[in-house]
């Protein structure tokens, strides 16, 4: 039996909205540790790793490990039926073929349940080693989203270059070119607006903007985003979910031939 109750049910809706454009079908892995997902996009260029710890839920019970295969798009459609302030409870039997989402309004006057059929999904799992990255940038997530969107009006790829002076996002295209440089700065009163650059050595990598724009769908989940890069390694774009876990996106770089 799997049962998980989340007072802030809207959190799961935001999570689904940040994954469904990249991945169609995926397995949610339920265990005593929590509720997790690892999935690659169909081109095997990017990967989502999402984890919500069991202690972040208001109630969490998972008697045995369970893999729930779902269409992320269909699950997102169901979660759209949940009120913004509703309490969400997910339930699944160990050998069942469905998962139930129960929505309770804050005043308990409306209770609804939606059942989603589960699917058998063969998913290829990748082992991602712990890595000490050459450079890590923490910046406002809305600023990162804006930069990726703005640069997409000019080009398809972005060169992200971290130096001690800041992080520079550059693109070129048929109509011209664009650069945005963000400098590190702290703001004691508004920590969500600070930019922190932790650099062991300068690093510059090129990525397809299309994927970064998909990752930015997670912006409503966190005020800050953390971008980790090392030479010739996939970038990690991580959004921390307060008191619960994170959603991290991995994207393979583009390499000059």
């Amino acid at each position: 039996m799997f049962e998980a109750r989340l007072t802030q049910g809207v959190l799961l809706r935001k999570l689904l909205d940040s994954m469904k454009d990249l991945v169609q079908d995926a397995n949610f892995d339920c265990s005593s540790t929590g509720f997790a997902l690892q999935a690659m996009d169909s081109s095997h260029v990017s990967l989502i790793h999402m984890q919500l710890r069991s202690d972040g839920f208001d109630h969490f019970r998972c008697d045995r490990n369970l893999s729930m295969g779902v269409s992320l798009n269909n699950m997102a459609k169901i979660l759209k039926c949940m009120g913004n302030d509703d309490v969400l409870t997910m339930k699944a039997e160990d050998q069942g073929d469905s998962v139930t989402f129960m929505f309770e309004s804050a005043n308990q006057e409306r209770i609804s349940d939606f059942e989603l059929k589960l699917m058998d999904i063969d998913s290829e799992q990748l082992g991602i080693p712990d890595t000490d990255y050459s450079a890590t940038v923490k910046m406002p997530s809305a600023e990162f989203a804006r930069i990726c969107k703005d640069l997409s009006t000019i080009g398809d790829t972005v060169l992200i270059a971290v130096t001690k002076d800041g992080v520079r996002f550059s693109t070129t295209g048929d109509i011209g070119s664009a650069n945005v440089t963000v400098r590190s700065h702290s703001n004691v009163d508004k920590p969500e607006e600070q930019v922190v650059i932790d650099m062991q050595e300068p690093v510059a990598l090129t990525f397809a903007l299309r994927y970064l724009n998909s990752f930015a769908k997670a912006t409503p989940l966190s005020n800050q985003v953390m971008i980790s890069m090392s030479k010739e390694l996939p970038v990690v774009v991580q959004y921390r979910i307060e008191d619960m876990g994170h959603i991290s996106y991995y994207l393979a770089p583009k390499i000059e031939d």
Partner: peptide, 14 residues
């Protein structure tokens, strides 16, 4: 610009 790498070039399957 450049050739798009796949993730399998960097991470092993489990």
């Amino acid at each position: 610009g450049g050739r798009q790498m796949g993730l399998a070039s960097f991470y092993r399957g489990t």
